[in-house]
């Protein structure tokens, strides 16, 4: 069985593990896109105190923030089919990845909702009034004036959330997803060399996080320059 820790294996495993990076990024992508759309709706429900939806949003957000994502994922994986079955929709043949995407999107929606909500509230009412006064409707005002300004305010927190979301993907392997961590795990089981694979994933996470951080900081500087 050889050495317990063989640095050469890091080089050998790296391409294998790196080849699963698209899966990780796919999860991050849909988590953030889905989370942003749903998060905006949650934020609007809360800001306009929409009856029932506001309460539901408050409950959902504190539930998500108060429970580990692993549990949320299991609830979606085992619970969503039952729930949808009730409405006559059968998703028992769904790929596991779909459940992961839904879980992470829901999870991020809760965090993004709070970020988006406070950013929307930070746009002065006078901006809406100016928009109405030139004849924009409520939804035009929101899309063209409020949301772009809110997005700017939210941008740093948004960037931090994307990086968090990426690190959160580290639990997707528990449903058997072959992302970078799932691949490291699989290699470990096959070869009894677990640590080397994890070192590779750690390096990938660090590099990706730093890249994202710098990209966001760069965009931020460019936007603030005006």
């Amino acid at each position: 069985m050889g050495k317990l820790f063989d640095p050469a294996l890091i080089i050998e495993y790296a391409p294998l593990i790196l080849s699963r990076l698209p899966v990780t990024l796919l999860i991050v992508f849909w988590a953030i896109v889905g989370g942003s759309v749903l998060g905006t709706l949650l934020a609007l429900a809360r800001i306009h105190k929409v009856p029932f939806l506001n309460g539901a949003a408050v409950f959902f957000i504190s539930f998500v923030r108060g429970t580990p994502i692993l549990i949320q994922m299991f609830i979606v994986y085992y619970g969503l089919p039952l729930l949808l079955m009730y409405f006559g929709i059968n998703i028992t043949r769904w790929a596991k990845l779909n459940f992961v995407l839904v879980s992470y999107a829901l999870n991020n929606a809760a965090f993004l909702a709070e970020i988006i909500r406070s950013a929307i509230l930070s746009v002065p009412a006078s901006q809406s009034e100016a928009a109405w006064s030139v004849g924009l409707s409520a939804s035009q005002t929101f899309r063209r004036i409020i949301l772009p300004q809110a997005f700017r305010t939210a941008f740093p927190a948004f960037g931090a959330r994307v990086i968090n979301a990426m690190q959160d993907t580290a639990l997707a392997f528990t449903l058997g997803i072959l992302d970078i961590l799932g691949q490291a795990q699989a290699i470990g089981i096959r070869t009894y060399h677990t640590l080397e694979g994890y070192v590779v994933t750690a390096i990938i996470f660090i590099v990706a996080s730093l890249l994202m951080e710098h990209t966001f900081a760069f965009i931020e500087r460019r936007r603030l320059a005006r």
């Binding site: 006078s126 901006q127 009034e129 100016a130 004036i145 300004q149 700017r152």
Partner: peptide, 9 residues
């Protein structure tokens, strides 16, 4: 408006 209220974006 008194405070101009140009669209900041």
């Amino acid at each position: 408006f008194q405070s101009y209220n140009l669209f900041n974006n």
